[in-house]
């Protein structure tokens, strides 16, 4: 009989479920959803590819830059890539709207290119560090570090030693 009171209370409270799809479903900030990638901050360390449990992330080096590929259908939203990314270029968004038609299953891919730069001194191809890495390593940038940032390691060493980048 004690349950009758609970039943009555529950009846009075109305539906406990969310009104989705007719209303908005609450999504918390910490929700681990679709992966987003920011090519300006990627430093090409490939750690996200290394830790990706499902093998959803792939990098390939091509002429124009480092190509990043994520297969959203293979991603299990574990968040390891975001955790181990030193510059937080890869993140998990709150977007959980991942349903799609069967024929679109091979299109659930995001592609981005982290373009190579050329050394301002010798023209050698180089992988840019990105602003976030500089923020992490030097707690900010100044005109000198920005000039050095666009040089290959060899030229940077020379410029730094001779003081020409000052």
């Amino acid at each position: 009989m004690a349950f009758l009171k609970i039943l009555f209370d529950n009846l009075r409270k109305g539906p406990a479920t969310e009104a989705f799809p007719f209303g908005e479903a609450a999504t918390p900030d910490a929700y681990r959803g679709k992966v987003t990638f920011d090519e300006t901050n990627c430093v090409g360390c490939n750690m996200c590819e290394h830790v990706c449990a499902g093998g959803a992330i792939r990098f390939s080096e091509q002429e124009d830059g480092l190509h990043f590929l994520i297969w959203h259908n293979t991603c299990i939203s574990c968040g390891l890539c975001a955790h181990y990314c030193p510059t937080k270029a890869i993140k998990l968004s709150n977007d959980w709207h991942l349903s799609h038609l069967q024929e679109e299953k091979y299109e659930q891919v995001d592609h981005a290119v982290v373009p190579y730069r050329h050394c301002t001194s010798c023209g050698e191809r180089l992988q840019p560090g990105g602003p976030m890495l500089h923020q992490l390593a030097f707690k900010g940038t100044n005109p000198r570090s920005q000039r050095l940032m666009n040089m290959c390691p060899d030229c940077r060493r020379k410029a730094s030693y001779s003081g020409e980048a000052l």
Binding site: V51, A53, G54, L80
Partner: peptide, 11 residues
């Protein structure tokens, strides 16, 4: 799999 990937697999 490596130790990091195993975190997600074992879960």
């Amino acid at each position: 799999r490596n130790i990091y990937q195993n975190l997600a697999l074992i879960e």
